[in-house]
């Protein structure tokens, strides 16, 4: 892929469409202990939900003929979860307009406004498609339990709050199974592309890194922040979860 990745590091801004946070309907979420090698809608309500049983040790279901055991995970107090999706290209940024083109225009105005003008191939947009206050975490044959890495990751918001001046921008769940990876904390702007597991920048730390910490199974981007607000964005592949407190 030539050197286009390098160029992209310099040229990228992500904008959240705030209007989508207001309207995001509550969603029921299930986090499965497997990868489905595609991203597409699925008839969860017809195939999965009706098969869930309350067993002696918690929830039970099967997926593709394999037994899963699950439990509810609650979003930490004071926070709200959002399912975020990136839609639309650059400036045009369509895809989150639920109604008329008027809404769309209005949303354009609501953008977290960057100091510079929007540029094609430079600015990208994400918006919430749903909100949640918890989800069902499933393990293959065993209940994920208190040591589940997702649970560990969910403690990051309070860590960020405790360290002040830090903002957790992203926790990447995409390789939740690989336990020995490292979390690094970055200054803003975010490195782009976000390093994937196994591709984290080698030491010494990239310029702007304020702190580094390891956190098995998750990658967090913790960013210096100069207000009291703490925002956490958790990335579970294309599902983005933003916390705000």
């Amino acid at each position: 892929m030539e050197s286009s990745d390098e160029a992209a590091v310099e040229k990228c801004r992500i904008h959240l469409r705030p209007g989508t946070l207001r309207d995001a309907p509550p969603a029921t979420l299930h986090l499965l202990p497997c990868e489905v090698l595609v991203s597409r809608p699925a008839p969860v309500g017809r195939f999965f939900t009706p098969a869930i049983r309350q067993g002696p040790d918690g929830l039970e279901v099967s997926f593709r003929g394999r037994k899963l055991r699950g439990e509810e995970v609650v979003v930490p107090p004071g926070l709200v979860g959002y399912v975020m999706e990136e839609k639309g290209e650059g400036l045009v940024g369509k895809g989150f307009s639920e109604g008329s083109s008027n809404d769309n225009e209005q949303e354009q105005l609501e953008l977290v406004e960057p100091p510079e003008a929007l540029e094609r191939d430079f600015d990208r947009f994400i918006g919430a498609t749903a909100s949640f206050s918890g989800f069902t975490l499933w393990g293959l044959e065993t209940i994920p339990g208190p040591d589940a890495k997702v649970r560990g990751a969910l403690t990051w918001p309070s860590l960020a709050a405790a360290t002040q001046n830090l903002e957790v921008i992203g926790l990447d769940f995409s390789h939740i199974q690989s336990a020995s990876k490292y979390l690094r904390l970055y200054h803003f702007p975010l490195p782009s592309p976000l390093p994937a597991w196994g591709e984290l920048p080698p030491s010494p730390s990239p310029p702007g890194t304020v702190a580094e910490a390891s956190y098995p199974g998750t990658r967090g981007i913790v960013q210096k922040y100069n207000s009291h607000r703490v925002t956490v964005m958790i990335r579970i592949h294309q599902w983005f979860v933003i916390y705000s407190a």
Binding site: T28, L32, E35, V83, I236, H237
Partner: peptide, 9 residues
């Protein structure tokens, strides 16, 4: 996709 997150909505 990563660990699949079914999205009921």
């Amino acid at each position: 996709a990563g660990p699949m997150l079914h999205h009921g909505a």
